[in-house]
Amino acid sequence: MEARNLGFSHGVRPALFDISARFAPGQFSVILGPNGAGKSTLLSCLAGLLTPDSGAALLGDAMITAMPAKSRACRIGLLPQSAQTHWAIAAETLVALGRYPRQRGWGLSPDDRAAIDAAMQATQTSAFVGRPVTELSGGERARVLMARVLAGTPQWILADEPLANLDPGYQIDMLALFRAQANSGTGVIAVLHDLHHAACFADHVVLLHQGRVFAAGDAASVLTSDNLAAVYGIDADVRTGKEGAIELFIKGRVAL
């Protein structure tokens, strides 16, 4: 999956300029950047929800916005930003919605049921069968929504700030889920805020700044003191610790 010279404006306000970035299947890619850098806009372009003004978002050689909606939906699964669910429907009914683009006619086929079961097992949500999603805690609901994405067995998973409002334990659970999906060959692209998460889990980091790609590459090459100072205006110590792990310590704001 690739953004090629992609530009996008919200009305007259330009959000993305000439973005070029490649994402590989089997990798956990993370899009980082300060508020307003265009992270969610880029993800929406890759998901086919927004049509770029210039350039293109491509999957293989196909323009993502030109793909038929259902075949796009079969290949790209999106976990949107708000974890809102509007009606008190049962967890398994919610997960079943992920099968929508693959369903023919009414009712669930054996394939559908198998995919739903597998997705709920992978996310450890099988225990929530029969429970209305509105009664689950935020962390439990996030996992059910993730199971919804997995149930569609997409080749690509795009997640927009999937860790918002989760406590540290659930955050690690979700990151481990993304990691496991990437290890099994799925391309995972997530917009994250926490630099530590990116440092610990990402194979590939795209750092956006003011609508442009500021740096891209593996975590060690992108998360440098200089880059973080330039993009976030923070003073951070970055060290490579034992076994190549990146240790990040944020000391404060960069003196202007």
């Binding site: 998901a47 929800l49 939906a73």
Partner: peptide, 19 residues
């Protein structure tokens, strides 16, 4: 069915192929 999928919000519904 489209109304069901809209339970996920508009972005979620569009990403699943709802027009």
């Amino acid at each position: 069915r489209a109304l069901d999928v809209l339970t996920l919000g508009e972005d979620g519904a569009r990403s699943l192929g709802i027009n």
